[in-house]
Design a protein around this nucleic acid. Structure first.
Length: 93
DNA sequence: TTGGTGATTGTTTGT
DNA sequence: ACAAACAATCACCAA
């Protein structure tokens, strides 16, 4: 009950940390990497607003097992951020 | 201990 | 360069 995600403020947040350990990517990013060329290839002419939306549709259109490879990458990417955050707290402190 | 916040990630396209 | 839909995230810090 808290943490409502309806009012999405503007995008492109800004950093506030000295070293800014940027976070990690998300499954969508990995999936999008594969879909961007696919969706765009199947939707020639569909502009960003549309492709972006279609992408999300397909994303969940996949079975949980289909997004598994993306999830796995998401985990690995998180670990990636893990190292930066590690150095962040190490160097910032 | 717990909560929720914000910040971020990457893509697409168009000007 | 940036802007929003699309989705996930999830570590971060504080009281």
């Amino acid at each position: 009950m808290a943490a409502p995600r309806e009012p999405r403020k503007k995008t492109t947040r800004r950093k506030k940390d000295p070293n800014a350990p940027k976070r990690a990517l998300s499954a969508y990013m990995f999936f999008a990497n594969e879909n961007r060329d696919i969706v765009r290839a199947e939707n020639p002419g569909v502009t960003f607003g549309q492709v972006g939306r279609i992408l999300g549709e397909k994303w969940k259109a996949l079975n949980d097992d289909e997004k598994v490879p993306y999830e796995s990458k998401a985990e690995a990417d998180k670990k990636r951020y893990e190292s930066e955050k590690e150095l962040y707290n190490a160097t910032k402190a």
